[in-house]
């Protein structure tokens, strides 16, 4: 069990993390969701014993890691956001290097390396130099290097940043498999769909603080009274947007990539009214989708900002 109690971290005058409390039970998959700069990586660094909190503490099986980080480190795998690999070495050489660092040797090292290469789907490229790999392959190897010593808890910091959809899908499948095999997982991302797919419990972080936490269902219930209507039109005039705001004063109306998003209570049935207002403003609606709340909406509801702002 990994537990964060009242974690604070201050860098000079900037408070990066403020009063963070978290709990990871064995076998649980926990998501840490938040926009860039929310304090996720700093929190992870404290949880993994890389940096000391300014105040508060991290407990591993009820023992503070501030005093004894070794017990946690032996059983912890961390996948950093950066590609923490030697680009001039081959995939196999990289894994051998990190395996040796964790004390693996001889036949055990060879077997673990082969097993990990199979798991991350790089067996056929094991002798190729890492710098020749695609972004997705590097990310997969980055994960592999954290799994060599067979950790029981895995912390992943934005493991799918900047890769193609196929590699992303491969990585998500691999992580899902690890979770099914019983791995305790802390997964941070600003892609809410990844967290939604992989995690049972979610912490939402913003500006250094945990602003909400719970299961997906619990969190969504925070905005369950609301529905989101996505409108597409040939031309979305400002007059149309203003008329909608006038007619639905309690609704949150915003525009993203030429799509108009209207969030309002679910008990309202607004489509007929919206089409009428559109007709009055000479706007031709080409599509209208009514959506139930997502984690994105939860974040918006809690902060008033979109997750990727």
């Amino acid at each position: 069990m990994l537990q964060a109690i009242d974690l604070h971290k201050k860098f000079k005058t900037k408070e990066a993390v403020h009063k963070v409390n978290m709990l990871l039970e064995a076998g649980e998959s926990v998501g840490l969701l938040g926009p860039n700069g929310a304090g996720k990586s700093t929190t992870i660094s404290m949880l993994s014993s890389l940096i000391m909190p300014t105040s508060g503490e991290v407990l591993w099986n009820n023992v503070s890691i501030n005093k004894n980080p070794e017990a946690l480190r032996k059983t912890l795998g961390v996948v950093p956001q950066e590609i923490a690999l030697y680009p001039e070495l081959s995939a196999k050489e990289n894994l051998h290097f990190f395996g040796r660092i964790y004390g693996l040797k001889g036949q055990l090292l060879v077997e673990r390396t082969e097993e990990i290469l199979r798991k991350i789907g790089l067996s056929d490229r094991k002798n190729d130099i890492v710098k020749t790999f695609s972004g997705g392959m590097k990310r997969r190897l980055n994960i592999g290097a954290a799994l060599l010593h067979n950790p029981s808890i895995l912390i992943m910091d934005e493991p799918t940043v900047g890769i193609d959809p196929q590699s992303r899908a491969y990585i998500l499948d691999t992580v899902k498999q690890l979770v099914e095999e019983g791995m305790t997982l802390l997964y941070t991302s600003h892609y809410m769909e990844e967290v939604e797919l992989l995690c049972d419990k979610i912490y939402i972080m913003d500006q250094g603080e945990i602003i909400a936490h719970g299961t997906k269902e619990t969190l969504k219930s925070l905005v369950s009274d609301n529905q989101t209507i996505e409108l597409k039109a040939h031309v979305l005039s400002k007059g149309f947007e203003a008329a909608l705001k006038k007619h639905f004063p309690t609704a949150n109306i915003r525009k993203e990539d030429e799509i108009l998003l209207i969030t309002m209570p679910q008990n309202e049935e607004p489509l007929a009214t919206i089409f009428a207002i559109a007709a009055e403003n000479a706007v031709t609606i080409t599509s209208a989708i009514v959506k139930v709340p997502s984690l994105e909406d939860v974040f918006l509801h809690l902060t008033g900002r979109a997750l990727r702002d």
């Binding site: 890389l50 950093p80 923490a84």
Partner: peptide, 14 residues
């Protein structure tokens, strides 16, 4: 340090 290898090694108790 920039690539995170340093942290990886620290986590391996070096």
């Amino acid at each position: 340090k920039r690539t995170g290898i340093w942290n990886r090694l620290k986590l391996a108790s070096i």
